[in-house]
Design a protein around this nucleic acid. Sequence first.
DNA 1: ACGGCTACTGCCAGAATCTGACAGTAGCCT
DNA 2: AGGCTACTGTCAGATTCTGGCAGTAGCCGT
Lengths: 229, 229
Amino acid sequence: MSRSERLLDLIQCLRRHRRPVSGQLLAAELGISIRTLYRDIATLQGQGAPIEGEAGLGYVLKPGFMLPPLMFSDEEIEAIVLGSRWVARQPDRRLSAAAVNALAKIAAVLPDDLREDLDASTLLVGPSAQAIEGIDLGTVRQAIRNERKIGFLYQTAGGAASQRVVWPFALGFFDKVRVVVAWCEMRQDFRHFRADRISGLNATETRYPRRRQVLLKEWRATFDKPRES
Amino acid sequence: MSRSERLLDLIQCLRRHRRPVSGQLLAAELGISIRTLYRDIATLQGQGAPIEGEAGLGYVLKPGFMLPPLMFSDEEIEAIVLGSRWVARQPDRRLSAAAVNALAKIAAVLPDDLREDLDASTLLVGPSAQAIEGIDLGTVRQAIRNERKIGFLYQTAGGAASQRVVWPFALGFFDKVRVVVAWCEMRQDFRHFRADRISGLNATETRYPRRRQVLLKEWRATFDKPRES
DNA sequence: ACGGCTACTGCCAGAATCTGACAGTAGCCT
DNA sequence: AGGCTACTGTCAGATTCTGGCAGTAGCCGT
């Protein structure tokens, strides 16, 4: 196995173990010596990988992912950049910032001529409303990933507010605002909640009883049939 | 210089020369022997780089770009994927197809857990109108890159048609259709043309007298001032 | 404060890989 | 046919990588 492949494997290993893992163990998994492992880690860090090592604990990979060398056609790059620019204009602040960062990283490695070409491809959509975003969508994202229930106060369109406990499984856009898609315990049905009408969000440690993917699939299936609102 | 850096340099070299270039020359530029060059080219091709070599001619890199290993956070990846999905839904067929391909390439190297997370982030925008796209935007793209004039028949909103010769310098979206942004010789001013109202497009070899970037800059500047329509 | 665990660095000889040179085959072009 | 070029096989030498060892320093539980 070549060195570059092994470096990728090392990242995969670190991703698998969420908790800090000792270099000893990693070296064993990869079939290399500790010394070489240290060298590999140093190389990866040199390439920008956010690996953190603490004496007495082990290594953790801050959530993220290393894209291996990948070949894109001009048009594919254009599609990615255009799409990211669109995301950067969305009201979701976290995501918007992430898009800006991603664009910066890509632009940094793009050859000049290609960067110029991309400047000539402009997004003419009107300036999006800078919606205020009431809650921290990061919390929701984490709840989705860990399949945890969340509770919050929801302001309905009519003006009435109600306390909800829901099983969130997706996060989407709808008409410029982000919505949390979830199974609502109160209504015993799928509902979506506009992020800007949610307040008093609190994440719980209670796991909801079904798999996220299954909920997602069932929810999607409801689109193909007529449904009573 | 490490081998991996050299491979990247090789790509850059190939990008610079648009016409076929002999291995001899490439090897000299990189300061390596011919034999090693052949090995490097083989390695790159193994990684998916579209390098073509023909006996008696030399090497050409099909237009495109190799992204070096790059680190993205979860949110950055999400921004890119979400943006690309949006592009994939746009009416521009070429770009849409490119977005789909780019997504496939990214998905192929994404670890499973991250891919699942992304499934939970859905785009809820309504199905976009499948606009017919009258002309080949690839031709326009090329004219922009080479700063060539193009001529076409344009159907105005009123219904009248007129023959135009314009200096295209940008390609944008506007309300679900693609528009060509250009200096119009007839109007002696900046104009944008909806791609779906263009017909009889013909690319010329005539270079237009100003730099694309300059036109772009001036055109953008017109946004900041009041302008007579 | 202590011992155990761990991250990290410098060093060096052996292993693995890469490199350059040469010889030879085959395709494209004039 | 002849010149140019892309390719492949082989092999010794150069380069890099690797593993083991010794030593320093930080974190942790006792």
